[in-house]
């Protein structure tokens, strides 16, 4: 998928704004140490997303989870 430069720029600006907003957002009910780290959930989502894709690909190909369509026929 090719996105135009403008779209990309806008996307990154929005991301940046959210990060800044998160830095200033008061933490309502912090319990865990990471609750107070700014933009923690961004990093979490980024890594988690790649991790999930990786694991599922690993399951799909290395563990032969994915089969041909007529596997059961």
């Amino acid at each position: 998928m090719k996105l135009s430069r403008k779209v990309k720029t806008i996307f990154f600006i929005i991301l940046g704004l959210i990060v800044i907003a998160d830095y200033f957002a008061p933490r309502g009910y912090p319990i865990f140490p990471w609750d107070t780290i700014p933009a923690f959930w961004g990093a979490f989502a980024f890594v988690g997303c790649l991790l999930l894709i990786g694991i599922s690909k690993f399951l799909g190909y290395k563990l032969k989870v994915m089969k041909k369509e007529d596997f059961y026929d």
Binding site: M1, L15, A39, C49
Partner: peptide, 29 residues
């Protein structure tokens, strides 16, 4: 709708989209 919760959610959504786009871009079109 507390501010930290909204920003955390937006962060998660935004960075997920980013990761998706990067994986997408690294593959051929």
């Amino acid at each position: 709708y507390t501010m930290d919760h909204v920003t955390a959610s937006l962060l998660m959504l935004g960075f997920t989209a980013l990761a998706f786009y990067i994986v997408l871009g690294k593959l051929n079109p």
